[in-house]
Design a protein around this nucleic acid. Structure first.
Lengths: 326, 326
DNA sequence: TTTTAGTGTGAAACCGGTTTCTCAGGAGTT
DNA sequence: AACTCCTGAGAAACCGGTTTCACACTAAAA
């Protein structure tokens, strides 16, 4: 049905080895014969099977991406950065959503190994130190985004969450705010922990009492935490663990009849697309998600090609504080 | 390095045919031998190569998804629906972003054919009737989301954009609005065209003068179109081509010092995640993106398995009008 | 003219599985 | 005891490419 390399070969009157050489741009084939082969390929509408090529070369041109949920507004930019970089380097992209479920994550890692992807970019908050050994036994390169394991043997790329959060709090303090609260993220997620700790440290360093509301990385959590908080006190500034939480908080603030930023200032983190579309536009810490994705692919491919056999690389990209209207 | 089927076979003292049978749960292998093979698999940490399996069976368990831009908030839900359904049915997902560029789209289609995906889910606004023949020659199943080709030979799944938009306008009219404007989407995108036409028809049917501002499917376009419009007139209702445009319009309305919905009501379309996070929460037409994705996969797999060799199926999923605060 | 080196091409092995086909051996019949 | 029928397992062909290796042929050197 679909023509294969032998069809092309006999159609052009050559051996399949020669056709293979033409396909792979091997320079040492007679130009005249090359033309004949190319013509045959054209006529038959032949396209080599990547499957067969992969089997023969014992490698694929595919990388795997495992992330919590593409529906979470932080991830599309990351995914896009990964995809663009991957395609630019000649790789395809396999994708999976784990919903932060450990079993699902392990299952998908297996699935990718099965598919023989050359490497995996893993964004996980459920991974634990004790899983590292198992993963290493898989003998496949991993790159972690938003590093969650300290001293892990895997390459990673992230931002300095502690520093970013510290600066954000400093920004508030610099403006004269004293009642600054923090709406924290999930207590088991690395980036959330760092941001929370930075907030506490910054407050203490200025003799201000830290007030943190525990929560999750989503809108509803932000809304409810803020609503709850407003029953007891009225802070002048809110530092949210991420933009979704900030947006939820803003909604609760409005609901209470307060103004932003006149009564309460709000700062989020991530700079998701909607940070610039909200009303008022959300001030936030811009996390270069797209670039993190690009960089992750670079690390991964280097690792696959053996460019970097040495020590693990933990890249830290720089964030930016973006002052908008909130 | 990685063990292969022969390693397992000799380790278990059987032939590779038997190992293959065990892997594929072929019922006719002696339980005792099966155990031996499974033990060998365990010990060696063997996992069959999907590549080799694919080559041997001349099929893959991978489907391709080609979409404009995962960064556009409409698509993550769609993609997620596709991914969930695909994995549920045992398929992996290959993904590509085209940025609505025709050449890129064609390139990726080729790439997917090269990868031997079993079928392609294509979300495109640049596809033209004249490309259909070429695509058919590829001899690979396609499913289109948001059908853009009339009478195409491809399966598709979409919503009734015309009806949805008509109802939205009717909703405004029912509330007594007379000055209703439409912020249209790109003039070459099928869904945008239908929504626009429905608006015009609905207005005319009620002897109201249609006012449409041309635009694009993004926030800035909505903002600028609305800003421009407000210099000439002050409508009481705005029907935007999608939520992004609606959000942009809302921002321009606020900027002008007007209130929503007291002065101007706004309705969008798609019900992206942020429609429920904006302030005020955006009223919109809910497009079941997740379900569209799921359904697309079903159609595709049916087609691949030959369950449906017959006529093309054009599924129309139902939308819902969601009244929120705008 | 013979030798040597170099070049382009084909035959065949190989990648790691699946599947057909063959056959040995045991159970059931007559 | 001889025959047929099953059953389970192995040998070998196959999927569609790549790559090694051998070799025929040409061109340059002696």
């Amino acid at each position: 049905m679909k023509p294969n390399i032998v069809d092309v070969a006999s159609h052009a009157g050559v051996s399949k080895a020669t056709v293979s050489r033409v396909i792979n741009h091997n320079p040492k084939v007679n130009p005249e014969i090359r033309e004949r082969v190319l013509a045959a390929i054209q006529e038959l509408g032949y396209q080599p099977s990547a499957i067969a090529q992969n089997l023969a070369t014992s490698t694929t041109n595919t990388i795997g991406l495992i992330l919590p949920d593409i529906t979470n507004p932080y991830f599309p930019a990351l995914a896009r950065g990964i995809e663009d970089a991957a395609h630019r380097l000649g790789y395809g992209l396999f994708i999976c959503n784990t919903d932060n479920d450990f079993a699902t994550e392990q299952e998908y890692i297996q699935k990718m190994v099965h598919q023989r992807v050359v490497g995996i970019i893993l964004i996980s908050s459920v991974l634990k130190e004790k899983n590292v050994k198992d993963m290493q036994q898989l003998n496949i390169p991993f790159v972690l985004c938003d590093r969650l394991l300290v001293d892990s043997p895997f390459d990673s790329v992230t931002i300095d969450n502690y520093k970013a959060a510290y600066e954000a709090v400093l920004h508030f303090i610099g403006q004269g705010h004293k009642d600054i609260v923090h709406l924290a993220g999930p207590p088991n997620v690395h980036s959330a922990i760092e941001r929370r700790q930075a907030y506490i440290d910054a407050m203490r360093a200025h003799q201000l009492p830290p007030v943190v509301a525990n929560g999750s990385f989503n809108y509803d959590a932000g809304y409810h935490a803020m609503e709850e908080l407003l029953q007891h006190m009225t802070p002048t500034a809110v530092f949210a663990a991420n933009d979704l939480v900030a947006l939820g908080a803003m909604s609760a603030i409005f609901k209470k009849g307060l103004r932003i930023p006149e009564d309460i200032s709000v700062v989020g983190c991530d700079d998701i697309l909607f940070a610039q579309m909200s009303y008022p536009k959300l001030s936030t810490i811009s996390v270069p998600a797209y670039q993190i994705g690009e960089k992750a692919v670079e690390l991964l491919i280097d690792r696959c090609k053996g460019v970097n056999d040495g020590e693990t690389r933990n890249i830290i990209l720089s964030h930016t504080f973006i002052q908008r209207e909130s």
